[in-house]
C-alpha cells in the first residue's frame, strides 16, 4: 500500500518537474511547480515529517511561489513566449544531467546506513514531531538559527533596495 502511494507521488513529482522545465509559458511552469511542491509535501508525510510537510506547503507553495507568480505577471511576457525555448546544444546539457545521475548511481552502490540516532519513530511519536524538531533546533542548532534570521533580514533590506526606483 505504502509502495503504491510512493509510486504515485514519485511519478507525479518527476513528471511535474519535467513539465516545469519544458513548458513554454512561465505562468504554466510556476503552476506545475506549485503542484509539484504539494506532492513533495506528500512525500514528507510518508516519511513521518509532518511539520516539514506543513512548512513546505506554507513557505514554498504559499509564499515563494506566490512571489514568483506576482513577478511573472508583473513582467510583460508576450515576446518572451515566441522565442525559442531551449538553447542550442541541449544534447550536451542533457548528457550533463545524465552524467550526474550516473555518478549518483555509482556513489549509491557502496552506501550503507550506518549508526542510528536517538530519534526513532517511537521516540518522535512520543514527543510529537514539532516538539522533537524544536528541541534539536533550539539547543544544538541555535547559532545557525540566529544566522538564518540575520540572513532573512539582509534579504528583506536587499530586496527593498534593489526593487525601488532610483532617486535622482
Amino acid at each position: 500500500m505504502v509502495e503504491w502511494f510512493f509510486g504515485y507521488l514519485a511519478g507525479a513529482v518527476i513528471l511535474l518537474a519535467i513539465l516545469v522545465v519544458a513548458s513554454r509559458n512561465p505562468v504554466h511552469s510556476v503552476l506545475w511547480m506549485l503542484l509539484m511542491f504539494l506532492h513533495v509535501a506528500g512525500l514528507y508525510l510518508l516519511l513521518n515529517a509532518e511539520f516539514l510537510a506543513a512548512t513546505q506547503v506554507i513557505v514554498y507553495a504559499g509564499a515563494i511561489l506566490v512571489l514568483f507568480l506576482f513577478v511573472v505577471m508583473l513582467l510583460n511576457l508576450r515576446e518572451e513566449i515566441k522565442i525559442r525555448r531551449f538553447t542550442g546544444g541541449w544534447l550536451f546539457k542533457g548528457l550533463t544531467a545524465l552524467g550526474i545521475i550516473y555518478v549518483l548511481r555509482r556513489g549509491l552502490e557502496g552506501f550503507r546506513v550506518g549508526f542510528e540516532g536517538p530519534w526513532s519513530i517511537e521516540a518522535v511519536g512520543r514527543a510529537t514531531h514539532t516538539r522533537a524538531l524544536g528541541q534539536v533546533l533550539f539547543t544544538e542548532y541555535i547559532l545557525p538559527f540566529e544566522i538564518a534570521s540575520l540572513l532573512l533580514l539582509v534579504a528583506i533590506v536587499g530586496a527593498v533596495f534593489l526593487s525601488k526606483k532610483r532617486l535622482r
Binding site: I14, A17, I18, V20, V21, R85, F86, T87, W90, K93, G94, T96, A97, L98, I100, I101, L104
Partner: peptide
C-alpha cells in the same frame, strides 16, 4: 538532474 538540465538549457 532535471533541475540541472533546466538551468543549463533554458
Amino acid at each position: 538532474a532535471i533541475g540541472v538540465f533546466g538551468f543549463l538549457a533554458r
